[in-house]
Design a binder for these strands. Structure first.
Lengths: 259, 259
DNA sequence: CGTGCCAGGTGCCAT
DNA sequence: ATGGCACTTGGCACG
């Protein structure tokens, strides 16, 4: 069966269109800066930082108005091939197939889709002025600590956040109740040896920069791996269990809001 | 206009379906382990490691047979909300909206989509037995070096790859022309201070483990940051420019293949 | 299952 | 542009 719907410029929907018709409306959708999706029997090749080849089969393909491209198989969160925003999409119809090519403007990255058949083609203009808000990331932990330094420990005071050291930034820099300088490294998830080494790096950088021999280093996160904790102790650093959830509770209390 | 196509079990395509009809065929598609997509006017909430709320607007939503979920706005490579594979999808129809809920089996992560209207609903069974191959990753560099150790330097010999040290693995472990033990850390992209510290960690671990005082450390990658190079020199480590592309050329030569 | 680490990571923000 | 880093990172391989 073959069916066409809503081609008055509002949207386009083609059921099992012949290549030639698909080509026509695909161009129309792309030119009209619509979100375009289709299910196609296709081959895909990628060339850029690496190279890949995907042999023939049916996939869901999405092209967004900003030039981003997604090619999804029927499994997994990640697209098998893709392009981030800012690509130029071009199309070409030959005797036996339809070529869709996406070339990234800034770097040399190209994705080519050779299409032999389409199951469906849709082009839509998404009316979407919604706002997206996210809570519980490292940034929220930082905010909470600025407002409630005791989340780290009694008597802790924040001197500043995002303090620049040689390379990188210290999440929170402060002093403890004894007046000792203290570096706090925050992780919103499980912290591992990486995080410990990061903290160590900051503490050492700062010691050097300030010419101070004693600086406390505290890693604050909801969880730490066993190896991470071992390393932490070896390096004379400290661990403070602290979850984004707890920080959010404090932030809510302050704002009087339910997030 | 409203149109229905291919509901004989092969696929489903509904143009601008009423909520009730969409609900019926959505359930059918999910039950039949089909890939389901739809464009919907909806609100989205997420709760898990973090929390988020996306206010009302039109988005493209994809549900795969493996339980992965993607919610895309009309911009960007990344979905605004999502679930990786292995979620349980449930649906509920109320008077004024359709609820789609995805609950992750292993961890506590829930995405809820409140749908007020659908522009289109499609359910398809993707025939896809294609193979996906990728070239130019770190693994390919490793293979090339095993076959052509001189890619590192004249006289270099590989003892083994993926050698385990305290925590982690040394990419390539070998000896140079002077018989000195050498650790090689590979990066397929630009290497930064992180990579340098990683190499340092491996060299130190190995010195300790083997009771040797002199071990060379070579970082091989197509590019290194200025700060990375500084740190590398400070730590008496070395840099060898080497790109995945060059490695691939060698591999092709060996196999007599054009990849 | 936890731990470590790569990825065409992407995205954000700083210099 | 380069660089440093978080991310609901996801994904894999290995103890």
């Amino acid at each position: 069966m073959s069916k066409v719907g809503g081609m008055e410029g509002n949207h386009i929907l083609l059921d099992n269109p012949p290549l030639k018709e698909a080509y026509r409306f695909l161009r129309k959708g792309l030119a009209g800066k619509m979100l375009v999706f289709f299910i196609a029997d296709c081959e895909v090749s990628y060339r850029g930082r690496a190279r890949s080849y995907l042999s023939r089969g049916e996939r869901l393909i999405v092209i967004k108005p900003d030039g981003s491209l997604l090619i999804h198989r029927d499994k997994g969160y990640e697209p098998v091939n893709w392009q981030p925003p800012d690509t130029v999409i071009s199309t070409r119809l030959t005797d036996n197939h339809l070529l869709v090519k996406s070339v990234r403007k800034s770097v040399n990255e190209v994705v080519e889709i050779h299409i032999f058949d389409l199951k469906v083609l849709g082009c839509y203009r998404l009316k979407d002025i919604g706002t997206f808000t996210m809570y519980g990331r490292e940034e929220d932990m930082k905010k909470a600590i600025e407002m409630f330094p005791s989340l780290i420990e009694e008597g802790f005071k924040v001197l500043r956040t995002e303090r620049k050291v040689r390379p990188g930034f210290i999440d929170v820099f402060g002093v403890d109740s004894q007046g000792r300088l203290t570096v706090v490294e925050l992780k919103s998830g499980t912290s591992s040896m990486d995080a410990v080494l990061q903290l160590k790096k900051y503490v050492d950088s700062l010691k050097k920069e300030l010419g101070v021999t004693e600086i406390r280093g505290i890693l604050a996160s909801p969880r730490i791996t066993k190896r991470g904790l071992q390393l932490l102790k070896t390096l004379k650093l400290e661990y403070k269990p602290l979850s984004p959830a707890k920080c959010l509770k404090y932030l809510e209390r302050k704002k009087g809001l339910k997030l």
